[in-house]
Amino acid sequence: MGKPTRITNRLRELRFHSQELTQAELARRVGVTRQTIIAIEQGKYSPSLEVAFQIANVFRVPLEEVFQYPKEA
């Protein structure tokens, strides 16, 4: 695997609470491929800031509600 990311996300949960928004529909709205949405959900890809903000915009939530990064101790 590529460098493991420490970024986690709540994409799956947010999609569920948005009338089961499909990965394909989310991908279409954000302008990326469905494979990219799948990779983000599985933590295999960390999107660019721009795509991260676009995803947050789709769900109308702040970025931190979609993506989280562990705080340093």
Binding site: T33, T36, Y45, P47
Partner: peptide
């Protein structure tokens, strides 16, 4: 069905 994006 999908064009290339930043990940590609």
């Amino acid at each position: 069905e999908d064009e290339s994006d930043e990940r590609d």
